[in-house]
């Protein structure tokens, strides 16, 4: 089938999430920013790295105000590893093939996940000694360690260089230069390719022809405009195509005074309405234009304003305009409020 009905889609919160990190993760991240790795001791003596506010088995509070913090590493041993032959650029820590490893840092009782830059799977074994390669520009994030590298026999880890703050101040996780790290930014994008589905495709194809196509289930007389594929009352497929008028009445509405709710929203104020089309049994949502907002009222007859160029797209109906016909009587639409 045509790929016209498969759309690119992304989940990406503009600017990224702001994650407040709390005192324990905050101290760990502050340490990373300073080029140190700190763990926290649980009540049974285990040193947890990366530290959490709670013992990962008993959930008891650890690392609080009187927490027992311990410098660990920076070197450690690989507990297990896997090979990433095709790094995800922009997400994975390295853009060349690398290993993910669980690393038990010297002095720690748990293992930390990180990347190991070792060229090929032959460059790493379980038990290998590894040490962090620090970034010069550190912001208080796990990625302040660019990756770990394998140490040769007797080789010592390289200490972090003094922290370098970028000239524009970017690079500082919380916007303050020296204070403890209290939050981190988490920006990411997940991409999708989403198909329209059969019922929506029928509806959109109708729009491209200037028609509003609805659907009805064989067992029912009720017609659904812009059906998702079923009669929602019964779950029965709306397998029978029914053409619906492009005129109907406003059943209820609101006047929107908030700018910028959508790229498609017109200048404020505007009217967003529920519309009962002639021949349909469910409500459509639409914008009412072509008259002053204060003239819009319940029962007002409206008609679709079609775009000059019709496409299989919801935006082929630009908005709805008054027809000037007498109002629909309340009786006509009161059961659909």
């Amino acid at each position: 089938m045509s790929e016209t009905f498969v759309a690119e889609h992304a989940l990406e919160y503009p600017g990224g999430y702001t994650r407040s990190v709390g005192p324990v993760i905050g101290r760990f991240l502050t340490g990373l920013r300073d080029g140190r790795i700190e763990g926290v001791r649980a009540r049974d003596g285990r040193v947890i790295v990366p530290p959490t506010e709670y013992d990962p088995v008993t959930s008891d509070e650890i690392g609080g105000d009187d927490g027992d913090w311990v410098d660990v590493g920076p070197a450690g041993r690989v507990v297990t590893w896997s090979w990433v032959a095709n790094p995800r650029v922009g997400k994975h820590p390295l853009d060349r093939p690398f290993a993910f490893a669980l690393i038990r840092l010297d002095g720690a009782d748990t293992a930390l996940l990180h990347a190991v830059d070792c060229g090929s799977p032959d460059g790493i074994v379980t038990g290998a000694r590894v040490a962090p390669r620090w970034r010069a520009e550190r912001v208080g994030k796990i990625t302040d360690i660019e990756c770990f590298t394998v140490l040769a026999d007797g080789e010592q880890p390289v200490a972090a260089t003094p922290r370098h703050v970028a000239a524009d101040g970017a690079g500082d996780a919380d916007g303050t230069d020296e204070g403890a790290v209290t939050s981190m930014n988490s920006a990411f994008r997940l991409e999708y390719r989403i198909p329209a589905g059969a019922a929506t495709r029928r509806y959109l194809n109708g729009l491209a022809e200037g028609r509003i196509v609805g659907g009805r289930a064989p067992s029912s007389t009720e017609v659904y405009a812009a059906s998702r594929g079923t009669d929602p009352k019964t779950g029965e497929p709306t397998s029978i195509e029914v053409e619906i008028s492009d005129a109907g009445c406003v059943t209820t509405y609101c006047v929107v005074n908030i700018p910028g709710l959508s790229e498609l929203a017109p200048e404020i104020p505007y009217v967003s309405a529920q519309i009962l089309l002639d021949g349909a049994d469910n409500m459509m949502f639409g914008l009412i234009r072509g008259c002053p907002v204060e003239d819009v009222h319940m029962g007002m007859r409206v008609k679709a304003k079609w775009a000059d160029e019709l496409k299989p797209d919801h935006r082929s109906i630009l908005h709805w305009e008054p027809t000037g016909e007498p109002d629909a009587p309340y009786e006509h639409y009161k059961d659909n409020l």
């Binding site: 999430y17 994650r19 990190v21 993760i25 760990f28 991240l29 990366p50 507990v79 297990t80 590893w81 896997s82 090979w83 990433v84 995800r88 997400k91 994975h92 820590p93 993910f100 490893a101 669980l102 930390l112 996940l113 990180h114 990347a115 379980t126 994030k141 796990i142 990625t143 981190m184 988490s186 990411f188």
Partner: peptide, 22 residues
């Protein structure tokens, strides 16, 4: 873990392979 693991983006398969080797 959104603080110390998600920023490294290990895929489900990357993580499974760690367990497989162990």
């Amino acid at each position: 873990d959104p603080y110390n693991v998600l920023p490294l983006w290990p895929s489900a398969t990357d993580m499974a392979a760690l367990q497989a080797r162990a």
